[in-house]
Design a binder for these strands. Structure first.
Lengths: 333, 333
DNA sequence: TTGAAAGCGCTAACAG
DNA sequence: CTGTTAGCGCTTTCAA
């Protein structure tokens, strides 16, 4: 069937079969840049079909100087938010003719650097990441050929496109709802210490003042349910009994919920709990999570635009809203 | 700094700076295939360093005929088992100098075909997938240049390397444990109808006979927690009250658990529940899941070996074991 | 131990 | 509308 040895047809085989030059094959396969007579074109298409011809992606990428490849560095594949975001980015990317490649970094700066290196070596056109290194370190990224889009970052990093949900508004929404439920003794479970973006903490305290509340404590954990579980257990073991809790991600909320259950604290009767993300994960917990919802499709779209358009806005803040389920106390009979 | 226009150094720049030929640069970068004098080599390395030279992956792939790329088609990014498997495969692959690319197929045969197409267009060397199409359809895959490794498949598909946990043993382990807890009225929640592999159902009934039990019903759902939730709700609404439940994945167990909670059925007091997978997800549920654990690192390793060694065994069955947590009733005070 | 050069498969500028 | 051809950056054979 194929005329060359490897069993894989090249444009030359197609050209020969269709009795045209290789250029014409290229024009047909790419719909341009030159016009081709309809007859010729269909002859080429037929030949390509019959030889099961697929243009070699590496050759094309080499020639064009771009392989239409995007890299996404994911802190944790287990985190439901990233499961959804990955899928949304994948969908958005393929719609624009780009492929995606994912790598995990586990919120480890060293691993993150290695992941970037791997992706750059693969000649990705752009990298999406939720950076966990210092701003000074990020400076070095500017030496790379590829562009970067920083996710999960509410504060502009000079020189990089950034996109994230409106985290501060999320905190406001959560506190207001907790207060609306009559809760006054609040705590927040926040991610790892991250000197780059403490704006949520600022807003947390501002809101407390606004409502005339005693300043609720902020507990730190890494962005995993195990870590949040440990932090919550430590809090409860120390005797603290908040009546309203805000957790910075659905994934961590699972850990907090578990600690509460184990201490016999009923949710939402004894304490209201609101998380951030609004993913499917909140449907699986008991009780289901009331959550500040991130607009994941929009984040994916915005991220793609930022990566592909050099003149896209440097900082995109995406609105959030509330998904009311059970853990806040709204649906208790 | 760089002598060429794009700002990106090529082997020619390095060669010029190091005063050697481009061939020598190649020998040094790849540690072969020819020996290079230590002095010359270090001169080349220095030049490469100072120009921040990274070999172009597309050019290399084109020349070598392989880009060291592996594709993984994932039914669902949200499924905890795949979150873990993806990570394990990624790790295993990079350790061997391969990159990975993931695509979702949502257990949709059409999407699965498209995903394969995309990956083949990207020139992957091998594809890992848990196929959801008919065996006849899979025949066509043999036309592709790349090799395939079928995951989650307990029955050999002629002509393809297959790897999976010992599903049948998992069913045996689960039933034995349920019976050990004195449970006699069992049901199973199984994935979508899949004519290729019904061996677990056969074992399910065999085990019932062995224990002299009334044949427990098998409920079908898709491999998602929503779908399992619906199936379990329908069962409970119909008045069925099993005292022992086996669910074919952790992810689905979440849905079943939710339905039980909503119907006021206590786990494990009223019914024991055992799931399959043994992922972190079982730590997040309430109660925590007793589960048949899959050996994910070993599956990843086996899959890689199957993809890279043509003479690897055609069918690998990986042993499973039990992770005892709360949902079976073992830890009730 | 090093170098010259062919060629992987493709695109697109240029020429007809 | 179609064909010729240079060259993307790399590896490797062959020759020195």
């Amino acid at each position: 069937m194929n005329s060359n040895r490897t069993g894989k047809a090249t444009r030359a085989d197609v050209a020969e079969l269709a009795q045209v030059s290789t250029a014409v094959v290229s024009y047909v396969m790419n719909n341009g840049p030159k016009k081709v007579a309809p007859q010729t074109a269909s002859r080429v298409r037929q030949a390509a079909e019959s030889l099961n011809y697929h243009p070699n992606a590496y050759a094309r990428a080499l020639r064009k100087g771009s392989g239409s490849l995007l890299g996404i560095i994911v802190p944790d594949f287990r985190n439901p938010y990233f499961a959804l975001l990955n899928e949304a980015i994948e969908k958005e990317a393929y719609g624009r003719g780009y492929s995606t490649m994912f790598l995990t970094a586990h919120s480890d700066p060293e691993l993150e650097r290695k992941s970037i290196e791997k992706m750059v070596d693969r000649e990705v056109d752009a990298i999406f990441m939720a950076p966990c290194q210092k701003v000074e370190e990020l400076e070095r990224l500017k030496d790379y050929e590829c562009s970067f889009v920083m996710l999960e970052n509410n504060v502009q990093i000079p020189g990089f496109a950034c996109i994230s949900s409106d985290f501060c508004e999320g905190v406001r929404l959560a506190i207001d709802h907790l207060v609306w439920h009559g809760r006054t003794n609040l705590v927040m479970f926040y991610g790892e210490d991250n000197s780059r973006d403490e704006s949520r903490i600022r807003v947390w305290y501002e809101k407390h003042e606004e409502h005339g509340l005693r300043r609720g404590r902020v507990y730190r954990s890494r962005y995993t349910h195990e870590s949040a579980y440990r932090a919550a257990t430590a809090m409860l073991d120390a005797g603290e009994r908040p009546d309203g809790i805000f957790v910075v991600s659905d994934f961590e909320a699972g850990g907090v919920l578990r600690a509460l259950h184990e201490h016999g604290i009923r949710v939402p009767e004894d304490t209201s709990l609101i998380s951030f993300d609004g993913t499917y994960f909140g449907l699986e917990t008991w009780p289901q999570l009331t959550s500040v919802r991130q607009d994941i499709p929009r984040i994916a779209r915005g991220a793609l635009e930022a990566a592909l358009n050099p003149d896209a806005p440097g900082m995109q803040i995406i609105p959030v809203d509330m998904t009311i389920r059970e853990s806040c106390g709204c649906h208790v009979a």
